[in-house]
Design a protein around this nucleic acid. Sequence first.
DNA 1: TTGTAAGCGTTATCAC
DNA 2: GTGATAACGCTTACAA
Lengths: 331, 331
Amino acid sequence: MGRPTMEDVARRAGVSRALVSLVMRGSPKVSQTRRAAVQRAAQELGYSPHAMARSLASRTSTVLGVMVSDLHNPFFAEVIDGLDVMAREQGFDVIINTGGRSPARERRALTSLLSFRPAGVVLLSPVVPSAAISSAAAQLPVVLVARSSRLSGVDTVNDDGEQGGALAVDHLVSLGHRRIAHLDGGEGSGSGARRRGYLTAMAGHGLPARIVSSEYTDAAGARAVRELLAAGELPTALVACNDLNAVGAVSALEEAGLRVPRDVSVVGYDNTALAALRHVSLTTVDQPRNEIGRLAAESLLQRVRGERAHPARHLLHPSLVVRSTTAPPPD
Amino acid sequence: MGRPTMEDVARRAGVSRALVSLVMRGSPKVSQTRRAAVQRAAQELGYSPHAMARSLASRTSTVLGVMVSDLHNPFFAEVIDGLDVMAREQGFDVIINTGGRSPARERRALTSLLSFRPAGVVLLSPVVPSAAISSAAAQLPVVLVARSSRLSGVDTVNDDGEQGGALAVDHLVSLGHRRIAHLDGGEGSGSGARRRGYLTAMAGHGLPARIVSSEYTDAAGARAVRELLAAGELPTALVACNDLNAVGAVSALEEAGLRVPRDVSVVGYDNTALAALRHVSLTTVDQPRNEIGRLAAESLLQRVRGERAHPARHLLHPSLVVRSTTAPPPD
DNA sequence: TTGTAAGCGTTATCAC
DNA sequence: GTGATAACGCTTACAA
């Protein structure tokens, strides 16, 4: 006993399958009586349309596929929020997949997503090789978030990391800091832009740059600070590659008996929920995550509807959120 | 220019559609030569099977649907990790959906998931009314995670909150604490069990219970501590309803000039990544999240395969993770 | 306004 | 092994 089908509804309402189809899609050219009869029959049977059969028959899809490289990163949750709302507003369903940060699993996830023949897909910070992306783009509209690309078939939505890095530096300089180091994100996605922003801004202020190699984790942030301490080169301010790194840096500083922000100021990046905790209260650079999601959905839908053929390259403006980890330098 | 179909592959490989179908499904009764030819043709065309057509024709589904009430909660990310791995091992694809913590959106998300006619669904901490769940359960196997239910058609997987609450109390008592308060999670899912565990354990030790009503947020934890302070009733230890609440409590204590754990000990619940941060280093109760996910997938697959008809009720054992926020009471 | 019939891309059942 | 042919549940001309 499978779920009820359109045929069942038609029989019960005493009409043809085609008419039920019209009613289900809210067509205006159905008489009130028939419409009511069909709706009642559907109700009684607990019928709801079979999305796959529908898409197969209509050769169209109202599904947007989303592949997230890492479900653990709350950054993506907010991007998806924006994306989901926008997609639903436009009548599209969203299905999500995850690649678990591994290229191999991500590849499988992408294949799996494509097997549903969605109208388009958005890839959140994918780590698959570029070739996999371009082969997907040959089949359907693709939007890349938090990863740049020069592929002509692909739209991209990114935060302007250069501007964000500069924002952090400018803030510290305006507080009076002159010795400002950058805890670098290394291979991490987007870290290059943040570093460039830091370098450019430092140069612009005529200040000497100091880059400490690090990573996107709190342990790495703490390690970087200890290195600085050991070398006796502690600056008065730190621009961390992200919030996690910044929090690690703060705790290493405090363990060394220094006070933040009295002795050293620290700026994070991302404005995650972590930064907002009263216990942390981190000054940080905020990315418009919701907006990123909305823009990704919008871009994708434009492509899906064939409203645009040339690639769109969105670069969003970050903003600074000042909390309690920055202050003028000592003396 | 539609995506390539099985027909295209067949033509290019010079074989029939049926043969391509066999190859795609890895049937053993295909000659090596033909198999290779088909695979090459598929490769060249960038062909991958159409999941919906397949499922429609075979009257079966290899898709597991997952509805997450809140994508922002990292707890679910780990549950999904376990679930995803297990499902893929068994040859099932996983598609995820989110309800954004709102019953209305969640309802739509559930309907949307069901429209794909998945083999089964797992609902992660759903907030939809019980009726919606039972009507879904009438159509396909349903597993509930982090929400209990007496519905006969659904399996449940939960952490034993009573045991967890007791674990926290026992730990504090063994350190010598006698005045231990509970910061209650109120309406939050699972908070009832945690509270009962606290109450039972306190009674077991012959200690007076003290419950402070609170919520699953850091602001609520801080507020609860301030109330305790204002009433002049600060105990020597706090059992918080979750990690976020605990962190809020810690910061309020520190703002009041008290030291954790020297003056007051605090225990969280969930062992989120937040608790593990060196800057936080919270003693907390850990739930086996991965295991929860695996079990959910396993339960669902048993139902899908018709291996079991009666409902399964899994209750997993939490464990205590001791970090730096607990110590013997002063004096 | 309603019904008929021909697909959509795949699997499944048989003969060959 | 291989190849027709009939489903699967639905949409969509086209007819009525």
